[in-house]
Amino acid sequence: MVTAAAILWVVGLVGVPLGALLLAVGAEPAQVVAELVEQGGLDALGRSIVLAVFAVLVGGVTGTLGGLVLARQRFWGRAVLDVAVDLPLAVSPVIVGLAFVILYGRGGWLEPVATALGVKVLFATPGLFLATAFVCLPFFVREVALVLEEVGTSEEDAARTLGASEWQVFVWVTLPQLRGALRVGTLLTVARALGEFGAVLVLGGAIEGRTQTATTFVHTMMEERHDAGAFGMSLILAAMTVLLVQALPTGARTKH
């Protein structure tokens, strides 16, 4: 009884809607393709992929650094950093967008800095980058810190006593230990970057050809009654993210 109810619930809530989307797209494939191409869907998807790659690069570097700092170092202010790293999991994406709009908008604290550097943040590509980096922040840091805490420092100490410099210890011992963590971090980051909507909508403004991403494309299509295009892009996003999550080792999925 309990089993049956649980299965029905999960299948009804997730499985059936996915099936419905497949059917809806399958019913008018030509229309879907046409709207995706004509309305700038491919361009938007390309931009999302670029954002995802960017998020992996930035997250991989800063996350490895941050994981090392949080797992290996004790210092004043560490607790604050620890909480701040998890904050993106708790903050609504719209608020992320709003925060950067306030920070870089008229009268914002960093507006003079951006102007001095000649960078336009709002409704432009840098804004998309910022939003994506923010929402993806926790994944690499958490994965790396977790693994480093699990493996401890004895292998690194062993390498030191064998004469390895700190850089050699990092490249030959620490990094190989992090392979799994970096893989998981990459998958989670790509899935999140592709799916981010609220923050890139507010910060980027969904301007076709400039700041339109895959998700804001879906939103625009819905508002303009181009349902076929919206459904098509939704299916692409669902398929990509489902594949990503299937590539994750079990147990790593929970840490979203």
């Binding site: 004895s154 292998e155 100490d157 030191r160 006593t161 064998l162 004469g163 030959w172 011992v173 190989p176």
Partner: peptide, 18 residues
């Protein structure tokens, strides 16, 4: 440690797993 020229053996081996 890297410049002392000592050999160290750890209780839990600390072999490089990879």
């Amino acid at each position: 440690a890297a410049s002392r020229g000592v050999g160290f053996v750890f209780q839990h081996y600390a072999l490089f797993r990879h």
